[in-house]
Every structure is written in structure tokens, then in C-alpha cells.
Simulated assay, not measured.
Amino acid sequence: MKILYFAWLRERLNRASDEVSPPDGVVTLDDLVTWLRGRDEALDLAMTNPAIFKLSIDARIAPGHTPIAGAREIAILPPMTGG
């Protein structure tokens, strides 16, 4: 599964994506975010308030309780800032 990072999150992590294989216990988007944060200190620090991020599965915005089975691509979208 490919994890995509956008905007300031991508810049903070210094990468645009990761390829991951979550364990069997990771079944929803919320589970995935928790698992990703637990294995990556930079991501954990960047996502101290995960509720402000939008998540998408295969290019469709989805709530955190959405199952990830069969997903090819998950995107993590931080809140937009303007100027």
C-alpha cells in the first residue's frame, strides 16, 4: 500500500510517499494512522493532532472508521494554510 503525504506534511517529512504493509490488526484509516505514527517519530510529531488531517483512500476522502482492506493508496492531507 502506498501512503502519500501532501503540502507541509510532505516538506516536514522530506518525502512524498512510503510503501507499507500494515499488520493484520490495522483495519481502518484510524488504525493505520496510529500504526504509522508509532513507527515514525517525525510523522508522530507532525501529526500531534490527527483530527485536523483529512484522509483519502484511492483518491476519495473518507472518515477514520473506513476499512482499508483492498486500498492501493492512502493520502494524508494536512489542513491548508494560505497567504
Score class of each variant (00 low, 15 high):
residue 11 E to M: 02
residue 68 I to E: 06
residue 70 G to P: 05
residue 81 T to S: 15
residue 82 G to I: 14
residue 60 R to C: 07
residue 20 V to H: 07
residue 28 T to F: 03
residue 27 V to C: 09
residue 66 T to F: 06
residue 55 L to I: 00
residue 19 E to V: 04
residue 59 A to F: 14
residue 65 H to Y: 02
residue 60 R to P: 00
residue 79 P to C: 00
residue 81 T to D: 10
residue 68 I to T: 05
residue 55 L to G: 01
residue 2 K to A: 07
residue 75 A to G: 11
residue 59 A to D: 15
residue 49 N to D: 14
residue 26 V to R: 01
residue 82 G to F: 14
residue 26 V to A: 04
residue 44 D to T: 07
residue 58 D to S: 06
residue 59 A to N: 08
residue 18 D to F: 04
residue 17 S to P: 05
residue 20 V to S: 08
residue 19 E to F: 03
residue 53 F to S: 05
residue 38 G to W: 08
residue 61 I to P: 03
residue 76 I to V: 13
residue 18 D to M: 02
residue 38 G to F: 07
residue 47 M to Y: 02
residue 63 P to A: 11
residue 34 T to C: 10
residue 75 A to S: 12
residue 34 T to Q: 10
residue 8 W to M: 08
residue 47 M to T: 09
residue 26 V to N: 04
residue 80 M to A: 15
residue 44 D to C: 13
residue 31 D to A: 00
residue 32 L to R: 05
residue 59 A to Q: 15
residue 4 L to C: 13
residue 79 P to T: 04
residue 44 D to I: 10
residue 12 R to P: 00
residue 30 D to P: 01
residue 44 D to Y: 00
residue 53 F to M: 03
residue 8 W to D: 12
residue 20 V to E: 04
residue 32 L to Y: 00
residue 64 G to R: 12
residue 64 G to P: 05
residue 77 L to Y: 00
residue 28 T to L: 03
residue 6 F to T: 07
residue 5 Y to E: 08
residue 25 G to K: 06
residue 11 E to G: 12
